[in-house]
Design a protein around this nucleic acid. Structure first.
Lengths: 344, 344
DNA sequence: TTCAGCCACTGAAGCGTTTAAGTAACGCCA
DNA sequence: TGGCGTTACTTAAACGCTTCAGTGGCTGAA
């Protein structure tokens, strides 16, 4: 078991066969048959010499890397990824795990100064890429041209050319608002995440608005708090709401992400409003954050682990040509009732 | 700008030079000079044809991948990574960012059934690996043999053969306990994370114990709560402490990680104990979690982003041969005072 | 007895780069 | 006039693997 470069040729020599034979045996190439004794000799040589295949050489010939790229949105402020945002973190966990189960590794592929993620995909011969939560019209043509298997997650694209994994965010927003309405709330604020990015947050907002309108409540822009998805944005919105709820009549808030809900809690508390007795709160995602705050969050739940798993399976499906290139997979959502909402 | 396979040869033909020339120009190989007009022609051809280099071919010849592996501990329960644990998440963010800044990508490299991370490193020609928080005596020989640049982060190894990035966890534990002692607490419990894994948690525990002993307080095993680092472990410990603090006289708890501190809060609340008036709490790490709970956590702070950055820079240093193979880098820690501790 | 078909295996080309070694042209000095 | 140094390039081997296109020997049917 040496460590240095042991080539397939070395084990061919050791086992007294040709390199072709070794390659066929190690890859279990279909349609190639060998004496079991030969197979044994090859495997013995492999363990004896501590051989591991060289991916670079392999990739070079068959143009596959067993690598799948994951593109995650970066905030404009700090250009680092927010893995610590539980939504992204859990998603990535699930993606990594599912990929590994299938013999793939993942490559986190950000966009930096001198290379787009498409270029990264090309130089590194990525077998496929998973794109999370981006409005990608600008990259659309380039992706199409690169002819690389792509799965879009939480992307609201005008082009329906790629396989997509998503939930019905508009429906989720509708459910959240409807839930509050059914509990007797009439003035319902909404804390959202950067509508201009035209993604899930916008859809959730539209759902909220539709539910209100269906209940005969006119849309009031003053009840909408827009800003970058973050704890801080939640705090600010909470402080504003707490400072005005007695006059404005707001009794409930629908927040578009757990992380903002936690901020909202803080802001409401800073402003002297109690959850849920003064203000009911319903959130979205139901990550583990929803379970660690007090009161625990009632939320629209989506299964982010399932989302990750589904995304990987979809991209592998496209890679293997088993899955058509234009499927939309919509995962179910539900409402989890906890302690952050009370009736009126 | 086509997407298909454009080879260096194609751009050589387009520019009317040899492939060698193209390679030299594109790589800015030192010691090779060319007419500026030729250089221009080559670059024009590159953009005209949309050429991107093929990493596999490049790796094959020079045996470098511009990939650095990151090995993160997995829990025994779920074999997925806990990126959503803010400590790992933030670390990974920082590592990914720093690597990308330097033209590298990271490969999250878990251990699965059929390949150890060392084997992954060898097959994928990883340029280096960063190992986080593992007790690695079992892999020691294999790593050594693989002759791959390694940086250990938060690993307490008996062998001092690798570059290591760390903090003084024992000192941190000591500081935490001392802080509580200085506030007048005498019965101080400690919630730790799986001592048997012999890592940072053990060191922090030892520090706590030393501080107590230095203050003339005998070690009392009943005050130690051991278990896997998790929110749930914190909850359980909190409930036990809340149920007995009046008899046991415990007035303060040192928790070994923020995530457990949040669980502890919950457990204490479940059991009817108030923070900080009944029980003071000091935590470790000071991730963003410490700022989102109520009351905000007083904690021993370490700069996890700096840790990630330092780890990458260290591994790049080893790769380039600039950094000796056996350096220990210890990062500073401090105490951040917030609202979870009160005096006696 | 022949030969088709199968089994077990091999030879060699090719994947897209890098890089050591070489060459041709030119200017310059003695 | 010869030779040396420099500049601007080229030739070709090598990296470690996959895979197409065989080859030789054996069995069994005609």
């Amino acid at each position: 078991m040496r460590a240095g470069r042991v080539r397939i040729q070395d084990i061919a020599a050791e086992a007294g066969v040709s390199v072709t034979t070794v390659s066929y045996i190690l890859n279990k190439t279909p349609g190639q048959t060998f004496a079991s004794e030969t197979i044994q000799r090859v495997h013995d040589a492999v363990t004896a010499l501590g051989y591991v295949p060289n991916m670079a050489a392999r990739s070079l010939v068959n143009n596959r890397s067993r690598l799948i790229g994951v593109v995650i949105p970066q905030t404009e402020l700090h250009k680092e990824f927010m893995f610590s945002n539980p939504f992204y973190g859990d998603f990535l966990s699930s993606v990594e795990y599912t990929a590994r189960q299938n013999g793939y590794h993942i490559l986190i592929s950000g966009t930096n100064a001198d290379q787009t993620y498409i270029e990264v995909a090309r130089t590194r011969s990525l077998d496929g890429i998973i794109i999370l939560g981006m409005y990608l019209e600008e990259h659309y043509a380039e992706i199409k041209r690169a002819e690389i298997p792509v799965v879009l997650v939480d992307c609201y694209s005008e082009n329906k050319d790629f396989t997509a994994v998503q939930i019905d965010d508009r429906q989720g927003g509708y459910m959240a608002a409807k839930y509050l309405l059914d509990k007797g709330h009439r003035r319902i604020a909404h804390v959202t995440g950067l509508l201009k990015s035209r993604g899930v947050n916008q859809q959730r907002m539209v759902g909220w608005r539709m539910a209100l309108e269906d209940a005969g409540i006119a849309y009031d822009e003053a009840l909408l708090y827009d800003g970058e998805v973050s704890y801080e944005h939640g705090v600010k919105a909470g402080e504003k709401i707490a400072g005005s709820f007695r006059e404005s009549g707001v009794t409930a808030v629908f927040v578009s992400a757990d992380i903002m809900a936690l901020g909202l809690y803080k802001g409401l508390k800073n402003g002297g409003a109690l959850v849920p007795s003064d203000i009911s709160v319903i959130s979205f995602d139901d990550t583990w954050l929803a379970g660690i705050c007090d009161p625990e969050l009632t939320a629209v739940r989506q299964d982010v682990a399932l989302k990750g798993k589904t995304a990987v399976e979809a991209v592998l499906g496209v890679i293997d040509g088993k899955l058509s290139d234009k499927r939309e997979i919509t995962l179910p959502i539900s409402i989890v009732e906890r302690g952050s909402v009370c009736g009126r």
